[in-house]
Design a protein around this nucleic acid. Structure first.
Length: 670
DNA sequence: GTAAGGCCCGTTTTT
DNA sequence: CGGGCCTTAC
């Protein structure tokens, strides 16, 4: 079967998909059929005899990667098990798996996420006798990230953190662990310092494609450049107007770097929008025109004007949530829409709670993406920590997490003794604890001694079981959870809230289901526990493939990039939320990035856009008068239908509201 | 030495 | 309101 890409694509898209050789820069406006173009481009390559294993497609999120892979598979009707479609970070893990031994790491390294990183920094601070409360740990963590990725240099202002940074690095190294930044930086190091390794990858990946190029960091760009510099078959696709990750090191400058490093490039602009109505697109265009730092472009659409954009001013955030629910319900019933045709977008994760509550009361099926990831929840992290230690005993951060969770009488004093041995012997905490267990004239009380012994023996036992290929790991882990009596722990910890305990335990069951599915899945050839652990550390949402259907999508604007919905609700369109106060506080120039965020939000909508701007909002504990987002005034008035807050709460609703409040109050105070 | 209860504070966005 | 950290109670 051949695919007629000329017929399926517009002229510009065709040009982009047909040019397989040489560097290509594609500026693809929102909704310009970028994914479609990329999909066809890959299919076109495959049809022209390029082997799938020679293609590397890099994306930003797991979701995007999965989607792209699916689409290519469907289009070409091939299995494509050797096509590499991956996020930057997952690709980094792959390189490290293969070559990290050159850097003197073991390939069963642990990946530390944000939380683990913070604990590691705290540990490092302890080593240096820096009391952790003098540090703004969050800030330090960001600084280290900037230093590591080369975004910032040591200067007089931050020099004082240099010893701590070095200690932190040593800590990671000693515990055979890497952080998220390492997943990019270490591969770059390998590719720079080992020409053989570089050659190997260049030989393998002769055709490279990068999606969401505007969101790549300088380090990620280096990686691309290294891989592509020999073959020069590299296609990057991006839209400077949708660059919303600069705080994480994403750099618009990369588009310029690309132009300098690959001067022979072809540049193609995709400006026809296939997604939104004229009204929505005009609003987006007028808004983004206020940014100074951008590539000139004007998106246009062949679609009609469509419905007007509507702006509502709810009294407060509860009313806002109820309003959104009501609207979704009524449109769902009247307009023959499915629930998954609705997208509810928010600037910050914490805005989701009330909306979720409202969906729950109204029985609207929904799905939140982003936010605290499933795998970041405490109960899941606890179980993962056990698995981490079983896989990599040097992993101190996770050892610390499980040593006394569930409580087994191994507290501060015991830990101090373990630390001492670890320090003297230069070994991991686990090894130190294992040694302490046998010490004859133990400095520990009998009770503690036997508890420690039991703990270590248990770990050893499960370690052995996991190595036995005959036994299903799923069963072993399930067994482990029972042995440590995690359920009992949850009950004790949440005595006053049995529901919470049950919910948490249910999460663990879900986790186990996911694991079992993974283990059973014949597609995954590498069934090592560490492979699974490293995979899930990079997941933010629970990627349940088939559950997208029939559910309203609730997510942050950041998470919505690349997606589209028939109807979009944008909540919290208020000053200090978008643009976010913190962002402006940090640097007034961030206003442009906030505007791009708003732009991304608007351009998700196909048919209809609703915006809500509350008059008051509860922030922390107090009720604050809020003003509408200043960006609203950058959209031509005639495009928006304003709904003045005329309708006050009617009596019935008011009663309902107060009754709810009263109940809430009563149940809390005995 | 460990665990339970009191007190303060509130991470923008994510791999 | 809930989680992390510190103090006090066993």
């Amino acid at each position: 079967m051949t695919i007629d890409i000329k017929k399926e694509l517009n002229d510009k898209q065709y040009l982009a998909a047909a040019q397989v050789n040489g560097p290509l820069l594609i500026i693809a406006g929102a909704g310009s059929g970028k994914t479609r173009m990329i999909t066809y481009r890959i299919a076109h390559m495959l049809e022209n005899g390029i082997h799938q294993s020679n293609i590397l497609a890099l994306t930003f999120t797991n979701k995007a990667a999965r989607e792209m892979e699916e689409r290519v598979k469907t289009l070409t009707n091939r299995k494509l098990t050797n096509l590499t479609v991956s996020t930057f970070h997952a690709f980094g893990v792959k390189i490290l798996k293969e070559s990290i031994s050159h850097l003197d790491y073991n390939d069963n390294f642990s990946i530390y996420d944000q939380t683990d990183k913070i604990s590691a920094i705290k540990e490092a601070a302890r080593e240096l006798n820096i009391s952790p409360d003098v540090l703004d740990i969050y800030e330090v963590s960001n600084l280290f990230s900037s230093i590591k990725t080369g975004r910032q240099k040591w200067s007089e202002r931050n020099n004082s953190f240099k010893p701590l940074y070095e200690e932190y690095q040593e800590y990671l190294y000693n515990h055979n662990s890497v952080d998220f930044d390492d997943l990019i930086i270490l591969p770059v190091k390998l590719l720079t310092e080992y020409p053989d390794i570089l050659n190997g990858y260049q030989l393998k990946y002769q055709y490279i494609m990068v999606d969401e190029f505007q969101d790549t960091s300088l380090a990620q760009y280096k990686m691309i450049k290294q891989l592509a510099t020999e073959n020069r078959n590299v296609c990057v696709v991006g839209d400077d107007d949708q660059s919303i990750y600069s705080w994480r090191g994403a750099n618009y400058q990369n588009i310029i770097n690309f132009e300098t490093d690959f001067p022979e490039l072809t540049e193609i602009k995709l400006e026809q929008n296939y997604r939104s109505t004229k009204n929505i697109l005009s609003a987006a265009n007028s808004l983004i025109a206020n940014n100074t730092n951008r590539k000139e472009k004007e998106l246009w659409t062949g679609i009609g004007h469509g419905k007007s954009i509507e702006l509502y001013y709810p009294e407060n955030e509860t009313r806002e949530a109820d309003f959104i629910s009501e609207m979704i319900k009524s449109f769902y019933l009247r307009n023959n829409l499915k629930y998954h045709d609705f997208g509810v977008l928010i600037r910050t994760n914490n805005l989701s709670t009330l909306i979720e509550n409202s969906f729950l009361t109204e029985n609207i099926p929904y799905k939140v993406s982003g936010g605290t990831s499933f795998f970041q929840r405490k109960e899941i992290k606890d179980i993962i920590a056990y698995l981490r230690v079983l896989d990599n005993p040097d992993d101190d951060v996770n050892f610390l997490r499980i040593l006394n969770t569930p409580r087994r009488g191994l507290g501060k004093a015991t830990l101090l003794k373990i630390r001492e041995i670890s320090k003297n012997k230069g070994c991991s905490l686990y090894a130190a604890a294992a040694e302490l267990r046998w010490t004859g004239d133990s400095p520990l009380s009998n009770k503690v001694q036997s508890s420690l012994q039991e703990f270590i023996d248990m770990i050893e036992e499960y370690k052995e079981m996991l190595q036995d290929e005959e036994i299903k790991k799923f069963k072993t882990i399930k067994d482990l959870i029972e042995t440590i009596n995690y359920w009992g722990y949850l009950i004790v910890e949440h005595q006053k809230n049995e529901k919470l305990a049950k919910w948490k335990y249910k999460n663990i069951s879900i986790f186990m289901e996911l694991f079992e599915k993974w283990e059973k899945n014949t597609d995954s050839k590498d069934k090592k526990l560490g492979t699974y652990l490293n995979r899930i550390t990079l997941l933010t949402r629970d990627d349940d493939e088939d559950s997208d259907e029939g559910q309203v999508n609730l997510m942050t604007i950041h998470a919505s990039k690349g997606l589209e919905f028939e109807y979009v609700f944008l909540a919290g369109v208020e000053n200090n939320i978008i643009p976010h106060a913190r962002s402006i506080e940090e640097n007034p120039d961030n206003i442009e990035e906030e505007r791009r965020l708003f732009y991304v939000a608007i351009t998700r909508a196909k048919q209809k856009l609703f915006m809500t701007s509350c008059k008051t909002r509860k922030i922390g504990y107090e009720i604050v008068d809020t003003g509408p987002s200043p960006f609203l005034s950058e959209i031509p008035k005639e495009l928006i239908e304003f709904h003045t807050p005329a309708e006050d709460v009617n009596d019935d609703e008011a009663m309902g509201y107060f009754a709810k409040m009263k109940n809430k109050f009563n149940s809390k105070d005995h």
